[in-house]
Amino acid sequence: MSAIAPCLWFDSQAEEAAIFYVSLLGNSRITDVSRYSEGGPQPAGTAIMVHFELDGVAFQALNGGPQFPFTEAVSLAISTSSQEETDRLWTALTADGGEESRCGWLKDKYGLSWQIVPTRLGELLSGADADAEGAGRAMQAMLTMRKIDINGLERAYNG
């Protein structure tokens, strides 16, 4: 487990969000939940802090109230190995009020920003076998996409 764990500030959905996030990725789990007692700023039994791991990386989720909403200044990036994995995560994270953005970015229903990035994108843009013209075409194609389409990148790369 990492010595540093990002803390995600939620209004009141920390436990719900953590349960959702761990359901999306293998090697993920909730490791601890601390709860408010009587007299706290949220109802007794509501999670204060949820400690969880996403693919083995430690996170914390805090129910701190509405003062600090998420912004795009911080995002979680997931490197995907296939279009199927990209599609599955994109669909799950944009469901129920999530929002698509550009170039593989989205916001989930809690307002947290994510980047869903196929590893093939990096290979086409800067891999050892990438040619400058093909990489430029792939970059231009990526800039028109919301969810990254690997086949579309490949077509652009190949001219």
Rank of each mutant, 00 (worst) to 15 (best):
M1T: 07
M1V: 06
S2T: 14
I4P: 08
P6K: 09
P6R: 06
C7M: 15
C7I: 11
C7K: 12
L8P: 00
W9K: 05
W9M: 05
Q13A: 12
Q13E: 14
Q13H: 11
A14I: 00
A14C: 00
E15Y: 06
E15K: 01
E16I: 09
E16K: 14
A17M: 11
A18H: 03
I19V: 15
I19M: 12
F20G: 03
Y21E: 01
V22T: 14
L24T: 00
G26N: 11
R29A: 15
R29G: 09
I30C: 02
T31W: 03
V33L: 04
S34F: 13
R35K: 11
Y36M: 09
Y36T: 09
S37Y: 12
E38R: 10
Q42H: 15
P43C: 10
P43Q: 11
P43H: 02
A44H: 08
G45P: 05
T46Y: 10
A47M: 07
A47G: 15
I48D: 08
I48P: 07
M49H: 08
F52K: 03
L54C: 10
L54D: 03
G56L: 03
G56C: 01
V57Y: 14
A58P: 07
A58W: 11
Q60G: 02
A61Y: 01
L62K: 04
L62G: 01
L62D: 01
G64K: 03
G65T: 04
Q67H: 13
F68I: 00
F68N: 09
P69K: 06
F70P: 02
T71V: 07
T71K: 12
A73K: 08
V74S: 05
V74N: 00
V74I: 15
L76Q: 09
A77Y: 00
I78D: 01
I78M: 14
S79A: 12
S81L: 06
S81Y: 13
S81D: 15
E85K: 11
E85G: 08
W90Q: 06
T91R: 12
A92R: 09
A92D: 08
L93V: 10
L93S: 03
L93T: 02
T94G: 04
A95M: 13
E100V: 13
S101D: 03
C103W: 05
W105I: 06
L106I: 02
K107G: 00
D108I: 03
Y110F: 14
L112P: 04
I116A: 00
I116P: 03
P118C: 00
T119L: 10
T119P: 07
T119R: 12
G122V: 12
L125I: 10
L125D: 10
G127N: 10
D129N: 13
A130Y: 04
A130C: 11
E133D: 15
E133I: 07
A135S: 10
G136T: 07
R137K: 11
R137T: 09
M139P: 02
M139F: 14
Q140F: 11
A141R: 14
M142Y: 09
M142D: 05
L143I: 06
L143D: 09
T144R: 13
T144F: 10
T144H: 07
R146M: 03
K147D: 06
I148P: 02
D149A: 04
D149C: 02
I150E: 06
I150K: 04
N151V: 09
N151T: 14
E154C: 11
R155P: 08
R155A: 12
A156I: 04
Y157G: 05
